[in-house]
Structures are given as structure tokens and as C-alpha cells.
């Protein structure tokens, strides 16, 4: 759905740009390709690596590790799994819902979802290309620590039913 919208926006803007200035539009497309080509090798590698990880660690295994009774150990495991993996959003939330159904706890899922979105160990090579090693490590570490606060509050607010 959002992909159709974004493609439509792109086509409309490209057409406006083309009618206003052909040369500038060409230049824009060239720049677009240059930026895309720049990170393409990393992205291809990263996507395949994610494929391997998700094939090895399936949902059943994960929900066993981060069950309701697993406490802070489970939160740490959930956070680490989330930090390493990179699951597309439309897969991530149903997966999280499935894990909850399979016995995972809210606090643990809170940590998992939070690091899943904010921390990217596998995508770090792409991030380093733009922000350098130091800032990439700092950002991911802070986001990782922050996810524990998220987990704690979600556990307090949502966990008690």
C-alpha cells in the first residue's frame, strides 16, 4: 500500500520536474543512481545474511527463549535477537504477535520490537559508510540500552492484564 503511494508520488514529481527542466531531472536521476549504487553491495549482502539467520532461528525457538517467565534474561535475549536481525516491518509485527501467542512475555517482546527497529548490527556496515564507526557504535549502543527502558515500561503498562 505505502509502496504504491510512494511510487505514485515519485512519478508525479518526476513528471513535474521533467516539464520544468529536463537537464535538472536527468541530473537528479543520475544522483539517485549514484547513491543507490553506493550502498547496493552492502544491502544485497545484508539481505542474504538476514535470510540465513531467519531460516536458522525460527519463531518457535525464539518464543521458547523469551517466554513469560524468562524475566530479565528473556529481555536480554529478546533485545539481542532484535538487535541482530532485521525483519521487514510487515513481517516483524505479525511475528511479534505470533511470538506472544506462542508464550512470549510482553516485556520481552517490547525489548525485541524496540531493538529490532532501532538497533541494526547487520546493517552496521551501511551505517558506518555514512556516519563512521564511532557514531554508529554509539548510536546502536544507546538505542540498545534505551530498549530496556521501553521493555520495562511496556511490561508495566501492557503486561498486567
Amino acid at each position: 500500500m505505502s509502496s504504491i503511494i510512494i511510487y505514485i508520488i515519485m512519478i508525479v514529481l518526476l513528471m513535474i520536474s521533467y516539464f520544468k527542466d529536463k537537464k535538472k531531472t536527468k541530473q537528479a536521476l543520475k544522483k539517485a543512481w549514484k547513491s543507490f549504487d553506493n550502498i547496493l553491495p552492502q544491502i544485497i549482502g545484508v539481505l542474504m545474511l538476514v535470510g540465513i539467520l531467519l531460516a536458522v532461528f525460527d519463531a518457535q525457538l525464539i518464543s521458547k527463549l523469551i517466554g513469560n517467565e524468562s524475566g530479565w534474561i528473556g529481555v536480554i535475549i529478546g533485545a539481542v535477537i532484535g538487535a541482530i536481525t532485521l525483519i521487514p516491518g510487515f513481517v516483524a509485527f505479525p511475528t511479534a504477535a505470533m511470538l506472544l501467542g506462542a508464550g512470549a512475555g510482553y516485556m520481552q517482546i517490547g525489548a525485541f520490537v524496540s531493538t529490532l527497529m532501532m538497533v541494526g548490527v547487520i546493517t552496521a556496515p551501511v551505517e558506518i559508510k555514512y556516519f563512521g564507526k564511532r557514531l554508529t557504535i554509539l548510536r546502536n549502543t544507546l538505542a540498545f540500552v534505551f530498549s530496556f527502558a521501553v521493555a520495562y515500561i511496556i511490561g508495566k503498562v501492557v503486561g498486567k492484564v
Binding site: 510512494i6 535538472k24 539517485a32
Partner: peptide
């Protein structure tokens, strides 16, 4: 999603 993001980026850069 990624290709349109880059095209929009190119347009932003130029315009």
C-alpha cells in the same frame, strides 16, 4: 520502497 526513495532524494538534491 528503496528505488523511489532514491529518486525523490535526487530530486530534492537538485531542486
Amino acid at each position: 520502497v528503496i528505488p523511489p526513495v532514491f529518486v525523490l532524494l535526487g530530486l530534492l538534491d537538485v531542486w
